[in-house]
Simulated assay, not measured.
Amino acid sequence: MLRVDELTEEQVRALHDEHHMVSPIEQTPAWACYQASIEGREPWGWLGIYEDGQFLAYALAIAYHTHGYTYLNVAHGPCWVNKPDEQRETQAFAALRTFVHSRDKSVVFVRLAAWNASLTSPVLSTIAYDSTVVVDLHGGDEEILRRMSSRGRANVRKALRESPAECADETQRALRGFDEYYGVMVDTAQRDGFTPAPASTYASMLRELGPEHARLYVGRIDGVVSNWCLMTLNDNQAVYYYGCMSTAVRKLRAPDKLFYYAFCDLGRQGYDTLDMMGIGSPFCPQLNTLNQFKTKFAPKITTIAPARDLPVRSHFYAALVQAKALRAKLRTVLRTLKSQAK
């Protein structure tokens, strides 16, 4: 029989080491501290999943207080000792739902990584993906290049020959002030049609996680920031979290040069892999535009457990789903009326 127990941070560290687990940054004490610094969020607790006394997984749950309700985000978790089959995962989620509801009646749902769809629903918000590109950082600069696709090798070599960008790890410089970096994100958002997070989102992430868990790699042309990418680090794994590029340098191959620089620099420091954090697939066609750039850096696509919602208060959750559908329908009507008025 599966059960869920509350754990201390010390117990999680011991279990992590005992079972030689590799954890995503979002399932670490460092992430809990970082999330505690964000308004409307707070660490809800560490949870352990057991079967007949045998440890199976742990999870860090962060409470999100938003739009008048609360949900828990177990980002890229639970962290399993071994990948669960559908029956075990379903039983674990059922036990988790019972535990959460018994402890905190305000929680409407839990967002977590689910290999199987049982008991869960598609996420209400954000974009969930089930595919990514993981770059192997072993073997040195030439080996990293050799493992790319032929297109990737050609693009990187051309960037090394022709791009005027000078690349560096500017984490320490960014900690002293983020304004010059944020301007590039604003430019990217205007070009690509999205709303950028406040500058404090990126600055506080670097500050709260610290250089041990977050780095900012930057390209500069004639001394001016042309592009940058923010990487998170944990258990010798790196993840590409945020990135942007100035419109003025789009044809100067700065991204290829910067990513190759970051791959090589992290590889020399002993990091094993870099996850490019999500590409498009039949599960998530919204991200298909990322595929051409990201897939050239590795020979294969990696499948992961996508984020899904585990309803805890089912009637409340159903009302949220209905409200989302109504908002979508209203937006469609407004677009139609706007089009007819032209």
Rank of each mutant, 00 (worst) to 15 (best):
L2A: 03
L2Y: 11
L7F: 11
L7G: 08
Q11L: 08
R13K: 15
H20W: 00
S23P: 05
P24L: 08
T28H: 04
A30S: 14
A32W: 00
C33S: 03
C33M: 05
Y34R: 10
Q35C: 12
Q35G: 02
G40S: 05
R41M: 15
E42T: 06
L47N: 07
H65M: 01
T70Y: 00
W80K: 06
V81E: 02
N82G: 07
D85S: 11
D85E: 07
E86T: 14
R88K: 15
R88E: 02
E89R: 11
A92K: 02
T98D: 14
H101C: 06
D104K: 13
D104C: 14
D104R: 15
K105L: 04
F109G: 07
A113E: 05
W115S: 12
S121G: 01
S125V: 03
S125N: 11
T126Q: 05
Y129S: 12
L145V: 01
L145T: 03
R146K: 13
R153F: 04
V156A: 09
V156I: 13
R157L: 14
A165I: 04
C167A: 06
G177L: 04
Y202P: 15
S204C: 05
H213W: 00
D222P: 09
D222K: 14
T232C: 04
D235H: 11
A254Q: 12
D265E: 09
R268M: 02
Q269F: 01
G270A: 10
K294Q: 03
K294D: 13
T295D: 01
A298T: 04
R308Q: 15
L310T: 02
F316K: 14
A319G: 15
L320Q: 10
Q322D: 07
Q322P: 00
A323T: 09
K324F: 01
L326N: 02
L326T: 05
A328H: 03
T332Y: 03
R335P: 00
L337M: 02
K342G: 15
